[in-house]
């Protein structure tokens, strides 16, 4: 897809209070371009609820409903029902962080997914509670420093995208702020599908991940290239890797060593070689799992497991 095909209209207005090089505002801009004007956003407490601005101004040029942390999916379900009743055709989209998805909003999310509500749920995952000053969430990867895991997190992260697949919803996808064209395509696709749709975007956070602000895109790309983050689409029961992850699985591209990704970030600077080995093992196991899930389609070359 050519970048010039992406519309020039801006729905995330400039002059908002997001940090320099913010991965989430980068992704939100693209998502809103893909969704277009007829969209209602539901934003629970998150960085976005701060950088969208204070009354009487809003940095987002579509209607936004701010909800409590735990109930964004429930609010979106109600909004969609109300719009349907009034005969208004609009996309109802939840834009929540990983705290509002993985931890606090999980039960409402699971409920709405099970009811197959006609909403699009987008989780922008920066792997920590950045808004409140970098605390661990259940999306924080193994070994990462946060203010509440000072010597590195001891557990691997959970995977809500897989959890959503287990709910048997029509569409699940993962994306990265490093590949915005891929994200744009996935949101466009999700927009046309009826039922509950879930997209998760990896959005690097310069102050939280401790890297230099101009490297957001580089870090987001490296996460995919090293296998820390896998790009895929799950559509009506069929899982398909996309983009760079697909190229790596098909053997067209060599997977980079994860150390390259870890070294860029201050939050991983304390890792020992044993801990890095643990992360390598986690990646290899995860790749294997995804190859198995896909039933041998585009079989993954053996060298990527070691």
């Amino acid at each position: 897809m050519k970048l010039s095909e992406i519309p020039a209209e801006e729905y995330l207005l400039e002059g908002n209070s997001a940090c320099h090089g913010c991965g989430s505002s980068m992704a939100l801009r693209t998502v809103l371009k893909a969704l277009g004007k007829r969209t209602v956003l539901v934003v629970p407490a998150s960085c976005t609820s701060v950088y969208q601005g204070m009354y009487p101004g809003s940095a987002i040029a579509v209607p936004v409903v701010n909800s409590a942390f735990a109930c964004s999916s429930a609010v979106a379900s109600g909004l969609k029902a109300s719009l349907e009743h009034q005969g208004i055709d609009a996309n109802v989209v939840v834009w929540a962080g990983d705290g509002g998805t993985y931890d606090i909003g999980l039960q409402a999310l699971s409920g709405a997914a099970e009811r197959n509500e006609d909403i699009l749920y987008i989780c922008y995952n920066n792997e920590m509670y950045s808004n409140t000053g970098i605390q661990r969430s259940s999306a924080t990867p193994f070994g990462a420093w946060t203010t509440t895991t000072v010597s590195g997190k001891k557990e691997h992260r959970k995977d809500v995208a897989e959890l959503m697949m287990a709910h048997g919803i029509p569409y699940v996808a993962t994306a990265s702020a490093g590949y915005l064209d891929d994200l744009y395509r996935k949101v466009r696709k999700a927009k046309r599908i009826e039922g509950f749709r879930y997209i998760e975007i990896l959005t690097p956070c310069p102050p939280g991940w401790r890297y230099s602000m101009e490297r957001t895109v580089e870090v987001a790309k490296l996460a995919v290239e090293t296998g820390m983050w896998i790009l895929y689409e799950y559509e009506h029961g069929v899982l398909r890797l996309t983009g760079v992850s697909r190229a790596i699985a098909a053997g067209k591209k060599k997977m980079k060593d994860v150390q390259e990704y870890l070294l860029l970030q201050g939050r991983f600077s304390h890792l020992s070689s044993a801990e890095i080995q643990e992360i390598r093992k986690y990646i290899a196991e995860r790749w294997k799992k995804f190859a198995d899930v896909r039933g041998g389609e585009h079989a993954v070359a053996a060298e990527f497991f070691v």
Binding site: L13, E14, G15, N16, S17, Y51, Q52, G53, M54, Y55, P56, G57, S58, A59, I60, A61, V64
Partner: peptide, 17 residues
Amino acid sequence: KIWIPASKPVVGVAGKT
């Protein structure tokens, strides 16, 4: 006088960044 407490989209909610 404010009748509907809804924010309106404006460029520069955080000032000239």
